[in-house]
Design a protein around this nucleic acid. Structure first.
Lengths: 126, 126
DNA sequence: CGGTATCCAATGGGATACTG
DNA sequence: CAGTATCCCATTGGATACCG
């Protein structure tokens, strides 16, 4: 794909633009972290909460709903007492997670380079 | 890389977590769009503004600064009258753009699947 | 031309309390 | 257990005016 095609997809067609429309919902504070947890294996609500221990209950519910709405996450309710709810990645979710994982691995490997760039920038600016 | 390693990198080490620290700055409303424009070729301030025509001057300046601070973007001032400022991707920026582009292409190719998932979700919820 | 500065509205997100 | 509901604060981002 050519870069100018991607760029032009944005012009004149703002709400439909894939970059804006799709990536926007992956850009939240918690989305990628929840996807990492669910890509490993299906998890229950309380399990996810323990793993991402500083997320509030409100944001966990809300972010899972958004990911479910976009078709990345499946929500399975097991009616029992107490109720169980299991979250898992859909095929679409797994498909999307492949390129996302590449970006996550880049972040992991180049974390220090970014931090050093920041320190240099801040040192000059003072 | 194993998923549980990525996940565990988050636990107990919150501010240093690469996922949070690096991806957070790529998650803004304009970051990926500006990176797409600059990955094509270097551009002047006013050029970028024309291409991403609905960005405000304030957000263009601010987002470019953040990308520059993290080491993705280089800012070259040509002192002339009128002044010229050219923005371009650094080697680190080009390196990061490879996995980002894969995600952008995924978004482009699966845009409709995501929209359909949304419609189904909204239809059930009503 | 390429910015800053200021003000304001909208959104994101945390804390707490309550519920089937 | 897995949520909702409410309130409130912090951050994001848009509009406008001004500047070297």
């Amino acid at each position: 794909m050519k870069l100018d095609e991607i760029r032009r997809a944005h012009g004149g067609n703002l709400d439909n633009c894939p970059v804006r429309d799709v990536l926007a919902n992956l850009s939240g504070k918690w989305s990628s972290l929840l996807l990492i947890v669910l890509a490993e294996r299906p998890r229950r609500f309380s399990e996810i909460r323990r793993l991402v221990f500083d997320i509030s209950q409100r944001m966990l519910t809300q972010t899972l709903r958004e990911l479910q709405r976009d078709g990345y996450v499946h929500r399975l309710v097991v009616p029992s007492t107490p109720p169980k709810v299991e979250y898992s990645l859909t095929p679409l979710g797994h498909s999307m997670f492949q390129p996302l994982l590449a970006l996550i691995e880049w972040a992991d490997q180049n974390h220090m380079a970014v931090r050093e760039a920041r320190d240099r920038f801040d040192a000059i600016a003072e």
